[in-house]
């Protein structure tokens, strides 16, 4: 059996989580501390992938990332490649649909850290960014763990949007979820079983690890 889809899925999930942590951390902090009305709007936008069918996301991503789209167009000009039906396009799509799974746990973790430790750092002479990196982020450590694992696991599990944006190019965009679908279509139940059971077991143990760590860490100890 071809294990390439497993490798593609793991790569996609890992890259997506890294991008989401970079983008999502400042966004989550802003959502946690902002008192502006805009915060509600952004909160709702971030949560959208939780409720939309993945075909809706996939459709709009296709529009955005296509060679004539507002993102895909300039991308083609610069790189000479298309975002649709490419690994890069899958990363962009995954970042969007896994956004709430990373941003929401981070936002809640920053909220529970609260303003008090940041104030303490400020009166000790720490600049805001310094205090954020050395105090708020370590104290929100469990939130980072939860966010990474949920983001990773959810990216592994996505099907619809990935299929619409990436298609099923072996070695490029054919991820596990799509490989399973194709195995079933071709009545190759043995391979479908193997990949499905693998994904199921992997997801279960990842979630179990998160809950175990969350349980062991005392609230407030933060690591």
């Amino acid at each position: 059996m071809n294990l390439m889809p497993v490798w593609i899925s793991l790569q996609l999930a890992a890259v997506t989580v890294v991008v989401l942590l970079v983008v999502g951390t400042p966004l989550a902090w802003w959502l946690a501390v902002s008192k502006s009305r805009l915060q509600m709007v952004v909160d709702a936008l971030v949560a959208l992938p939780l409720v939309l069918p993945s075909t809706v996301l996939g459709f709009y991503m296709l529009m955005l990332l296509g060679p004539q789209g507002p993102i895909g167009g300039p991308w083609f000009e610069v790189t000479g490649t298309t975002l649709t039906f490419s690994f890069a396009g899958l990363v962009v799509t995954s970042v969007v649909y896994s956004l709430p799974f990373v941003v929401q746990p981070l936002r809640d973790a920053f909220r529970s850290v609260g303003a008090a430790p940041m104030e303490a750092a400020a009166v000790l002479g720490a600049r805001p960014l310094d205090a954020f990196i050395t105090v708020a982020c370590p104290l929100a450590g469990r939130g980072f763990l939860t966010a990474s694992v949920l983001g990773f696991a959810h990216t592994l599990g996505e099907f619809g949007a990935v299929l619409m944006v990436g298609g099923s190019i072996p070695g490029e965009t054919r991820v596990v979820a799509i490989a399973i679908y194709e195995h079933v279509e071709r009545l190759e139940y043995g391979s479908a079983h193997l990949l499905s059971a693998g994904l199921l077991a992997f997801s279960f143990f990842v979630l179990l690890t998160v809950y175990a760590i969350n349980r062991r860490t005392r609230p407030g100890a933060g690591r």
Partner: peptide, 17 residues
């Protein structure tokens, strides 16, 4: 962070980590 005023809070605010 630029004032030379340091503060001991009622709830101490040591960094838990």
């Amino acid at each position: 962070h630029q004032r030379r005023a340091s503060m001991v809070f009622q709830d101490n605010r040591l960094f838990a980590h």
